[in-house]
């Protein structure tokens, strides 16, 4: 019953688990980056659902300027999500740049094959 009531958190955890599994076990670099993004999306959903208060407004001051803190949802998680998105985009961009460089050099996206080509049984 609790799980059904907290379905957003449940979905967030499932997304995190899917993303983390892809990041760790997938050998394809693009799938790893996709896993990273799914994992981060799970975290952002968890945060957003935590800050949401049913029936309350978006925390934007109206033109009249009247502000009552109790009328709004919790704005801190929203701020954290925004910061997290910036971090996630930066990391994804760097990983994609690395992937492009590796593909140009080794003509494959499979990390095991790339590793074999780079080291060739050196270790």
């Amino acid at each position: 019953m609790n799980l059904l009531h907290n379905y957003e958190e449940l979905v967030a955890m499932i997304l995190f688990a899917i993303g983390f599994t892809m990041l760790v076990f997938s050998r394809n670099l693009i799938k790893k980056i996709m896993g990273l993004n799914i994992m981060d999306t799970g975290v952002f959903l968890f945060l957003a659902s935590m800050g949401y208060v049913a029936g309350k407004e978006t925390p934007i001051v109206p033109p009249t300027g009247q502000v009552e803190a109790g009328d709004y949802i919790n704005l801190i998680p929203s701020g954290l999500v925004l910061t997290g998105i910036v971090v996630s985009v930066s990391v994804s961009a760097l990983m994609l740049a690395l992937t492009v460089q590796l593909y140009k050099r080794y003509h494959t996206l499979n990390l095991d094959e790339i590793y074999l080509k780079a080291y060739g049984g050196e270790k």
Binding site: L23, L47, A118
Partner: peptide, 30 residues
Amino acid sequence: GKSLVAATRYMIFSLMGSGLVLIGIILLYS
């Protein structure tokens, strides 16, 4: 070539770590 491969491996391990830290922080905050 080896540096790029090393950077990729480093990044993947680091991102696993960061992901766990982030979800830990959010749980603690909640």
